[in-house]
């Protein structure tokens, strides 16, 4: 899909030129703005400025969120979604990194496979789901496959570009020392490409959750995506908003967790 290139990982706080550091407290106006907006929401609903059954006050949504958490229903849905996202993500990582390295280093395979990858890549994910339903059914196999397919592209692309742009001197030096091809891979190519691979993995981290939810909406029987559509039909906006909130929280936590892990495992990231 085209979303492959999403720099979704690039949050505002991390610019290309370095991290923008703000004076502590400079976020205060922004936080106040959010609080003000939430208050306005609450008021508009309670005072009846917006008369709609689908505009519940924030306090109702909070109550729904607490009830959801206490009842465990949201946790069950989130767990189902995360499981699919995780399996698809792992499969995509293995395939994306392996193919990225192989295609970057082997001309014949590149000529054969790259055009095929380039054809499938721009397909919008929702469009791939209906034909796949015919082959894979509407169960886990479908959703995991779609997550894997969507996550594959950013991982493959960054790995491929990363390997292709390794400094040639590095490779030549390694050749001069006549190291084996296995050692070349693990000792030279992989460490040099790791930051690029990590960038792709990070994009895929947020993507896999989105795509899992999306596939559950179109062909679901469980998971947050299905839950959302179900609540839409049940006309329970409070539960729906609360579920979106948990989903956003999960997405945020995944991204944060990835960044923390990356800083620990690849300390030279972003210092090249």
């Amino acid at each position: 899909m085209t979303a492959a290139d999403i720099p979704d990982d690039a949050s505002i706080g991390r610019t290309r030129t370095g991290t923008v550091r703000l004076r502590p407290g400079s976020r205060a106006p922004g936080v106040l703005l959010i609080v003000a907006l939430l208050l306005l929401w609450e008021l508009s609903s309670r005072a009846g400025w917006i008369v709609s059954a689908y505009w519940p006050p924030v306090s109702h949504i909070l109550a729904a969120a607490v009830a959801q958490l206490a009842g465990g229903e949201i946790l069950v849905s989130l767990a189902a979604t995360l499981r699919r996202a995780a399996i698809g993500y792992v499969a995509a990582s293995v395939a994306g990194i392996a193919l990225g390295i192989v295609l970057a280093r082997n001309r014949a395979l590149r000529c054969g496979l790259l055009p095929l990858i380039e054809i499938v890549r721009p397909m919008p994910t929702p469009a791939i789901i209906p034909p796949l339903i015919l082959f894979l059914g509407v169960d886990d196999a479908l959703k995991i496959f779609i997550v894997a397919l969507a996550s594959f592209f950013p991982i493959f692309t960054t790995t491929f570009v990363g390997v292709a742009s390794i400094d040639d001197t590095l490779i030549q030096t390694a050749r001069t020392f006549r190291i084996s091809s296995t050692r070349m891979l693990y000792g030279v190519v992989l460490p040099a490409t790791l930051p690029a691979i990590a960038a792709g993995l990070r994009t895929a981290t947020s993507l896999c959750l989105v795509v899992a939810v999306l596939s559950e909406m179109i062909a679901g029987s469980s998971g947050v995506g299905y839950y959302l559509v179900e609540m839409q039909y049940a006309m329970r906006p409070d539960l729906m908003y609360a579920a979106v909130f948990y989903l956003a929280l999960t997405g945020y936590a995944l991204n944060r967790g990835f960044l923390a892990l990356e800083a620990r495992l690849i300390p030279w990231m972003g210092k090249t």
């Binding site: 706080g13 976020r27 703005l33 939810v213 559509v229 956003a248």
Partner: peptide
């Protein structure tokens, strides 16, 4: 503008991680 940055950054950063497909049923209802 540093002022606008301080004002809008938290809002943008809290809306951005919402998986957008999740908003489809929300907006359909609303």
């Amino acid at each position: 503008s540093q002022t606008l940055y301080g004002l809008l950054e938290p809002l943008v950063e809290s809306l951005r991680p919402i998986p957008k497909p999740a908003l489809v049923p929300v907006l359909f209802l609303f």
